[in-house]
Nucleic acid binder design. Structure first.
Ligand SMILES: [Mn+2]
Ligand SMILES: [Mn+2]
Ligand SMILES: [Zn+2]
Ligand SMILES: [Zn+2]
Lengths: 136, 136
DNA sequence: ATCTTCTTTAGAATAATTATAAACAACGAA
DNA sequence: TTCGTTGTTTATAATTATTCTAAAGAAGAT
């Protein structure tokens, strides 16, 4: 349980004005126990449902991009018509349930360390992500 | 070097009529030494350039989807505004050069076997793919 | 309170992809 | 080879996720 005040501070510290809309979005995104995987459309609907207040779709996009830029959200590479985001910004891997279209976190110890034995001159590794697709 | 006749047979065997357009697309896709990573727009332009014959964009989409369904192309999960495909349909991993927006194949031995230590009841693993993002 | 700067918003614009439906080409049987 | 059938191509329209625009509104500083 994170308090509204903490969200306000977090936003202020990030040079983002703590507006009603951003605070509502924070509640939906960060007031939870487990990692949250979502699309913009998921988030848009949840804000309405959980806070009772309507936020424009443009603001959801703006806020998600702002949070992404600040490092509070991670973008997850899957092939889908919609972009997926993740409140777990640490380096970690995923199951993707193709039928349910749901992401599930994998702990690093569930996958083990991955050593990349090849390198490209002039380039360095930015991230290593494993995506495990699941079927029935 | 694969001959036109082989493409025609391949198409027939797949219950796809060997049209001029499909054969041209085959030439661009499969008449090469190395794996080919591409977007629909890449392919559309290359068909014009390499064969001198114009193919409609809709046909490129149709054909790519048909080949994908038949298992001749693989879709690569990266976050981009465009979908990437791959002529290497075996299970394999990738570098993605974020700046150049280019995919590079990784051999399985460059990554090593990946053992997934977690399972989800009722689901089985369909694929395990590693995406290594590269920066300068 | 006033001014400035940032934010929200509705709506328009963009861009990838998919759908539509008419013209066309491949096929198989006469 | 012709003819009828079925599959394919194509231009174009529709759809959909995302981004842009510009005006109205809210937050912060003085
Ligand atoms: Mn982003
Ligand atoms: Mn596809
Ligand atoms: Zn996650
Ligand atoms: Zn590849």
């Amino acid at each position: 349980m994170t308090s509204k005040q903490e969200f306000i501070e977090k936003l202020r510290n990030s040079n983002l004005r703590p507006t009603k809309q951003r605070i509502n979005i924070c509640e939906v995104l960060f007031n939870r126990d487990k990692t949250f995987h979502f699309t913009i459309s998921d988030l848009f609907n949840l804000v309405k449902d959980k806070t009772g207040e309507k936020v424009s779709l443009a603001t959801v996009y703006n806020t998600v991009h702002a949070f992404h830029k600040k490092g509070y959200l991670k973008e997850i590479p899957i092939n889908s018509n919609q972009t997926y985001f993740d409140t777990n910004v640490t380096d970690h891997h995923h199951f993707f349930d193709v039928k349910e279209e749901k992401l599930i976190d994998l702990k690093n110890e569930d996958v083990g360390p991955i050593e990349i034995q090849k390198s490209i001159p002039g380039k360095k590794i930015k991230s290593v992500e494993v995506l495990v697709k699941l079927e029935d």
